[in-house]
Design a protein around this nucleic acid. Structure first.
Length: 821
RNA sequence: GCCCGGAUGGCGGAAUUGGCAGACGCGGAGGCCUCAAAAGCCUUUGCUCGAGAGGGUGUGUGGGUUCGAGUCCCACUCCGGGCACCA
């Protein structure tokens, strides 16, 4: 592309200006109305790719637009710089992860600056900064003190090859480790947890008030998984003083309980198991303990070996509804970690119970009358049958009655259960925030005193290819003394999940200035909550849930007084970029870097493309046509540049009707673009400005020409509207024409003149039997009868009617009249 | 399997409340400028019948509600995403 101006020079000039002058630095005591715009801080993966470009373009439009609306906009930048990829890359290169990570940070920083995205760089944070680590550890210890952090034995995915715990995502579908290929086993390990389950109800309830995409809220609701039911006792048949406690959401189906099931991990299992059955039960328990949860579920979805996944224990319990004895089974389809780890099985109304009953020849009793032709389990609405005192009742009523019955006769208690589990934060990794704990033989778990924080990982670690946690083998780090008694002690060698860093970084951004504090709540409160959070949909659950939990917990332990309990008021999730159909990512080697485009269409052209290509929330396909569209965006900027310099424009002196129509278009564009920006419809905002340029250009270049003031107004408005989107060229052109005025980005956002937005005449469509026959120009205030009369008087309409009298005339003035014959 | 979202020209997409389908852009066709090209500019472009005026048809498929449906309802197909034994 040949451009009418030097793109690179213009863009570099303004990038330097914004950076040197700190144009977008904001102080905590700024008197203007506040706006906190935050783009999720990135994992530093090197130079930016199109996903970053898209992300930071959207963020930058928000920052610049809100600034022009007169607000003090907080726009910080930082790095989620701990994490597995750096550790793995460092192992591969035989390097320490820090220089590796910092080199990638420098690269990404170069990229975002070159894009023209503006930040208050004084507030930059990164997770591996010793100061950030200090406060992450302080928060951990505060959680510990208030009982929100605890240590417990947990079943984890353990890779024997890597000698470490794996996250579920790191275990492949066939149950092997994604890195070493070893078969992953389940293992009990002492691990640190955060008590996020204490907040399940609040996390669920306060979702309602958030201006987030509904699907993200829905995903979180499902993840939390609230369910209401009853917990009650099934007495042992041989000894009614003992009982098996179960949880159900369907107490109304109690008459259909034909067996009970306990999880392989259930504490009463050995008591329930008779000698005759012990061998078969042990087999189930062994199998379950060697199988990951992923495998367990894979088996079920493929329907493999249900009869092998459970066995009779030899014992019976009494169904409190029927007083009948029912057998107790052990099966791995019941989870030890949910509810009471035991269930009442109702094969008539529960599909899993039905399948299991079929495989084991157990009795099936229907308690809710299903519609005709239902074969298997039926869990829908219906009237109760075979259910004693519940017969004839609908499900809701029967639930209430059955709950009352269980409360009275079976130690029943109404109970709410959540699918959400406590957050396991221990990672057997090196490149993360060390957990600040010391283990002493006498004093057990001892927190590292605050004046000894931060606990930093030593630099001279050997990171070799075994993948063994380097901290556990580093004698100098591992061996310490007990802060309480001074005797030799061991340090905790696990690090924290990196999601802990991203759970509070937004608070540090709000106030990284107050010495001796992670953040001063009074200062942070000036910015919080984040008004607009922008990021990828892949963080819909974990990051956004953990961050919500953190802020609530910080408030409850007294570290965040006066702050809101929700961090992110408005959330926007942008779509992914796909490259010929598959996800664009570094690991797939299909990155399209922005560098080449900076030379041709510039950052402005590339930004315009990302804004124009489609709805910001939709996925974007990078195809063979993409470069053509990007060139088109560059051409648009060039056409704007030429019109700005009156290229081929003719002027006339006295404004006429055509000029008036240009003025109308100008003000209507202000209204449209403002509305579009507020509703995240950047693609239509760009289209509206293109239309205005087309219209002004057409009139200006016509033989009759244009009045200068009219064209200048249109051009100034276009520059202002484009300023958040294509900041470089608009800043340059504005400075050129208005050297004495403030820069375009310091201007107030334009306001449309209502008189020019209002329409004097509108096109009214006349239909005959729903087909358009005529278009009439009418006043917007036209009455129903006038509209009908005008329609019926139209010659084309009369011709189309061919004398047939209308049976009905539907008038919807001023847009439409439909004549029905 | 369950739960969500989506399907509009050759392509990306627009149509905010049920009221002119296809804004804007890409691509295509024709033209102007030029010795020629690039760049730029102009015209045109859903499909189809017609020389034309004009007509028919058209928003994944089938049905429905309505004077009127891309938009609402029912059933289905395909695509994308989330969860995956949570009792």
């Amino acid at each position: 592309m040949s451009r009418p101006f030097d793109v690179v020079a213009v863009e570099e000039k303004w990038q330097a200006t914004w950076l040197d002058e700190g144009t977008y630095d904001v102080d905590n005591d700024d008197p203007r109305e506040r706006y906190y715009a935050l783009t999720m801080y990135p994992y530093p993966s090197g130079f930016a790719h199109q996903g970053h470009v898209r992300n930071y373009t959207f963020g930058d439009v928000v920052v610049r637009y809100q600034t022009m609306l007169g607000k003090a906009v907080l726009s910080p930048y930082g790095f989620d710089s701990f994490g597995l990829p750096a550790e793995n890359a460092a192992i591969k290169a035989g390097e320490h992860p820090r220089p590796f990570t910092e080199a990638r940070m420098a690269e990404l920083k170069t990229s975002v600056r070159r894009l023209g995205a503006v930040y208050d760089w004084r507030r930059e944070v990164y997770s591996h900064d010793p100061e950030f680590i200090r406060w992450s550890q302080t928060i951990f210890l505060a959680f510990l003190k208030k009982g929100l952090a605890y240590r417990a034995e947990a079943q984890v995915n353990w890779c024997p090859g890597c000698m470490t715990v794996l996250a579920n995502e790191q275990v492949l579908a066939d149950g092997t480790c994604e890195r070493s290929g070893d078969v992953v086993v389940r293992r009990f390990l002492e691990q640190w947890f955060f008590k996020i389950t204490d907040y399940a109800e609040e996390l669920l309830k306060s979702l309602d008030a958030l201006e987030w995409p509904e699907r993200v809220k829905l995903m979180q609701r499902n993840w939390i998984g609230r369910s209401e039911g009853v917990e009650f006792d099934l007495p042992f048949a041989y000894d009614e003083t003992k009982s098996l406690r179960v949880f159900t959401t369907r107490p109304d189906t109690g008459f259909g309980v034909t067996y009970a099931v306990v999880a392989p991990e259930h504490p009463l299992l050995s008591i329930l198991t008779t000698d005759d059955e012990r061998a078969r039960v042990d087999e189930i328990v062994l199998r379950a303990s060697n199988t990951t949860e992923i495998e367990r579920s894979t088996n079920s979805s493929e329907g493999i070996g249900l009869e092998k996944r459970g066995a009779f224990t030899g014992s019976f319990v009494i169904n409190p509804f029927t007083k009948e004895q029912v057998p107790v089974y052990v099966a791995d389809y019941v989870l030890g970690t949910y509810g009471t780890g035991a269930i009442m099985a109702v094969p008539g109304e529960d599909e899993r119970d039905f399948e299991f009953a079929k495989a084991h020849g157990l009795k099936v009793v229907r308690t809710v009358q299903p519609p005709a032709n239902v074969e298997g389990a039926y869990n829908g609405e219906g009237l109760h049958v075979n259910s004693g005192f519940l017969n004839g009742l609908d499900v809701v009523t029967a639930k209430t009655k059955a709950t009352e019955f269980l409360v009275e006769h079976a130690n029943g208690v109404a109970k709410v259960n959540y699918r959400l589990r406590d957050w396991l934060v221990s990672r057997q990794r090196f490149w993360g925030c060390p957990i600040p704990i010391v283990y002493c033989d006498d004093h057990h778990i001892v927190p590292v005193p605050e004046d000894q924080l931060p606990v930093l990982a030593p630099d001279d670690v050997v990171i070799d290819k075994t993948g063994q946690s380097p901290l556990a083998t580093h004698e100098g780090f591992l061996n310490t003394t007990c802060p309480t008694c001074g005797k030799p002690a061991r340090r905790e060698t696990d690090t924290m999940d990196t999601f802990t860093d991203s759970s509070w970084y937004y608070l540090r951004f709000a106030d990284p200035f107050t010495p001796g504090k992670a953040f001063d709540p009074v200062q942070a409160a000036k910015w919080m909550p984040v008004n607009q959070y922008i990021g990828g949909i892949e963080h819909a659950i974990l990051h956004l849930l953990y961050a919500r939990f953190y802020l609530k917990a910080l408030d409850d332990i007294g570290l965040a007084p006066g702050l809101p309990r929700e961090p992110f008021q408005r959330l926007f999730t942008q779509g992914m970029i796909r490259f010929h159909g598959s996800k664009m990512s570094k690991s797939k080697g299909n990155l399209v870097t922005p560098e080449a485009y900076y030379q041709t269409v510039g950052a402005d052209g590339l930004r315009l493309y990302h804004l124009f290509a489609g709805p910001p929330g939709d996925n974007l396909d990078w195809t063979d046509q993409t470069d053509d569209v990007i060139d088109g965006c560059g051409r648009f900027i060039d056409r704007f540049y030429r019109l700005w310099h009156y290229r081929d424009v003719h002027f006339h002196d006295v404004a006429d009707e055509t000029d008036y129509s240009v003025r109308q278009a100008t003000h209507r564009t202000i209204a449209r673009v403002t509305n579009d920006l507020n509703r995240w419809s950047y693609n239509t905002a760009v289209a509206a400005i293109m239309e205005l340029l087309n219209a002004a250009s057409k009139v200006g270049r016509s033989k009759e020409g244009i009045e200068k003031a009219t064209l200048d107004e249109a051009l100034d408005v276009m520059a202002t509207l484009l300023a958040p989107m294509t900041p470089h060229i608009t800043a340059e052109l504005w400075q050129e024409r208005h050297p004495d005025r403030p820069g375009v980005h310091q201007l107030p956002w334009p306001v449309a003149d209502p008189a020019l937005v209002a329409e004097e005449t509108v096109t009214m469509v006349v239909q005959v039997n729903g087909r358009v026959k005529a278009r009439l120009s009418v006043a917007p205030s036209i009455s129903e009868s006038d509209a009908s009369a005008a329609a019926l008087a139209d010659a084309t309409v009369v011709a189309a009617l061919k004398g047939t009298p209308p049976t009905r005339v539907v008038a919807r003035p001023p847009r439409l009249v439909n004549i029905v014959t």
